[in-house]
Amino acid sequence: MSEEETQDRGNTIEFVSLSAGGQGFCVEITSIREIRRWSQVTALPFSEDSVLGVMNLRGAVIPIIDLASRLGLGTTEIGSRNIVVVVAIGKRIMGLLVDSVSEILSVESETIRPNPTLRRDGGTSHVTGLLPVDDIMLRVLDLDALFANEAEEAA
């Protein structure tokens, strides 16, 4: 797998591959704090549909967001097999509900293909690149871009 491709250590990026809404994504490992099982959340009033609620993470109150719903891929069916990926975006910590997390990939930066789709509104896309692994293709997810709005609100 991708480990064999690793030759030039300087350009190696590590990703965690996960699936949300039936699609394959990967997120840079440096932004991931921990991966835990789904547990019941407390719903927040007046929140977006993708915000499932808040959860107690060792004394910190963190919002849990349905990644599929945020990406417009329908809502994730919540069950005990779901996984919450706790990520740090800027100074904020939040949990992303996903279907599953598969593995850690070490890839050379050259193997990431640029995202060929252009956004018509000129906004930044939250998929910064495409990463072919075996016969499937993973989307490289830019969490900062995806949650830019929240970051501004909080500031």
């Binding site: 407390t42 009033p45 963190i62 609100e153």
Partner: peptide
Amino acid sequence: EGNYGTVTGIAAATILGDGKI
């Protein structure tokens, strides 16, 4: 506010004895 933002009508959160918010 730290991790999420302000919510209308909600001042803050707390953690109950059973660990729920």
